[in-house]
Design a binder for these strands. Sequence first.
RNA 1: AAAGCAGUUCAGUUUGUCGCCUCUUUAUAAAAAAGGGGAGGAAAGUCCGGGCAGCAUAGAACAACAUGCUUCCUAACGGGAAGGGACUAUGCCGGAAACAGCAUAGUUACAGAAAGUGUCGCAGAAAAUAACCGCCUGCUCCCCCGCAGGUAAGGGUGAAAAUGUUGGGUAAGAGCCAACGCUUAAGUAUGGCAACAUAUUUAUGGGACAAACCUCAUGUGCUGAAAGGCCAAAUAUGUUAUCCUCUGAAAACUGUUCGUUUAAGUUUGCUUCGCAUCAGGAUAAUGGGUAGGCUGAUAGAGUUUGGUUGCAAAACCAUUCCCAGAUAAAUGACAAACAAUUGUCUUUAGAUAAUUACAGAACCCGGCUUAUCGAACUGCUUUUUUU
RNA 2: CGCUAGAUGGCCAAGUUGGUAAGGCAUCUCCCCCAUAAGGAGAAAAUACGCCAGUUCAAAACUGGCUCUAGCGA
Length: 135
Amino acid sequence: MKEIYSFSKEEKLCSKIDIDNLFKTKGRNLASYPFFFNFRIIDSEQKQPLPKLVFLVSKRKFKKAVDRNRVKRMCRELYRLRKPLFLKDLDLLENKELHLCIGYMPNEILEYTKLQKGFYKALKVLINEIKKPLS
RNA sequence: AAAGCAGUUCAGUUUGUCGCCUCUUUAUAAAAAAGGGGAGGAAAGUCCGGGCAGCAUAGAACAACAUGCUUCCUAACGGGAAGGGACUAUGCCGGAAACAGCAUAGUUACAGAAAGUGUCGCAGAAAAUAACCGCCUGCUCCCCCGCAGGUAAGGGUGAAAAUGUUGGGUAAGAGCCAACGCUUAAGUAUGGCAACAUAUUUAUGGGACAAACCUCAUGUGCUGAAAGGCCAAAUAUGUUAUCCUCUGAAAACUGUUCGUUUAAGUUUGCUUCGCAUCAGGAUAAUGGGUAGGCUGAUAGAGUUUGGUUGCAAAACCAUUCCCAGAUAAAUGACAAACAAUUGUCUUUAGAUAAUUACAGAACCCGGCUUAUCGAACUGCUUUUUUU
RNA sequence: CGCUAGAUGGCCAAGUUGGUAAGGCAUCUCCCCCAUAAGGAGAAAAUACGCCAGUUCAAAACUGGCUCUAGCGA
């Protein structure tokens, strides 16, 4: 087994086609300050695949590449440290894979502690939203 | 010592926890373990130049674009270094003035306006073949007025008014003439690789604008890693080979055989049979080629240190090191300590708070431009204090 | 990564041999109307034509640099 708090390349969503599908029609979206989510559940060949993520920061809001990188890195750390709990709560069926996009809403870089609180709330809302159509 | 300007270098450090990318070794079915490495001076803007790659390409000219004092540096450049000229400021000095000279500092896209074309608003008589007023001569005439001509010495303006001053000269004037200056071109001599400088002779007399058109000289083939090369799933499809199905030859077309008809031949029609062909399917091989992957792609006009040559940019020699290689895109997050700066408080050493810039590689180099909290060093200038 | 356009009153915008910025909508004042709208007459507004330099007597325009906006190439 891999380490618990890891976030390797396999958990990133790298295919351009998948990302297009996520945004155009087939994905559902949801907002909870300071984040918004686009997600989509598809069939998979693996038995218990890990969710695949994309982090999104608008170029309009952060014009400098340094700021965008910093926000993305903070978001990734938030997800990485919260992942075990998130996977427990998620409890997907077998052969199902989650594609998730985490977008950053505010126009400024918030402090880490504030982001943490917001992220935990947002994840709860997200899990409820995912489970609704299944049940 | 402080302030300012210019240049060069650096541009937070250490520890802990968790995590990312990559290379090597061990192990190999996979996971894993150990060790090494992991943003910049601008990685930015994309303003130039080159490498590299593909395509094109007899030669020459035109067009288009770029550059524009000289010499040097360089792979190359629109970059840099040194020098020359011009301009500006300050000081000194010569002169009646125009202006010139010297020193220091700064600026400079700085070929050609005496090749040609064009533009120069308003004002002003006139803006490049300048006669409105004025001055002078002649004619008319008592005079004024008027007509013809000469004249750039004087005159509202303007950014700019036709080479400055003095003297001669003249009807009045004028580079018309002379002297002293200025501008340009050509020749000669000296110095310099050269730009150019100085001296001298002859000619000339010039408005500004070429970041207006243009002329001259020099250079440039086009495209750009989304270039180019290789491998290649699924699905669809092209080609080839073999086999099977349908007996379906209904329609259209072609050849052969047989029969009928006809004296024979030709043509047409009908019937039967078989092959090719068409339709569908299976297997195998193969082609282009999509998703995707590999390569291009990280050892180079390289880094460190020293020496030699050169005023310098830079070059050469020796030595040393291997120093990111991601690809929806890694190089991080959190905590603590220290350091620096600033503020506040007590007080001269602590406490506390805040801040620690600009900014993130995307094929690679050389420059330029722009952003940048702060620190160190070097040089110059100014002010103050001490000797 | 490689390219291309644009920026002019509050809004839409014209403006090229370089000579002080046309027009429309909106705004303000007056007339018309019992009143409003429409209509008619008149007026103001561009600090500094995105910003900073340069060329020129003079720059919205010409030249260089910067900022922002929009678009193109898979």
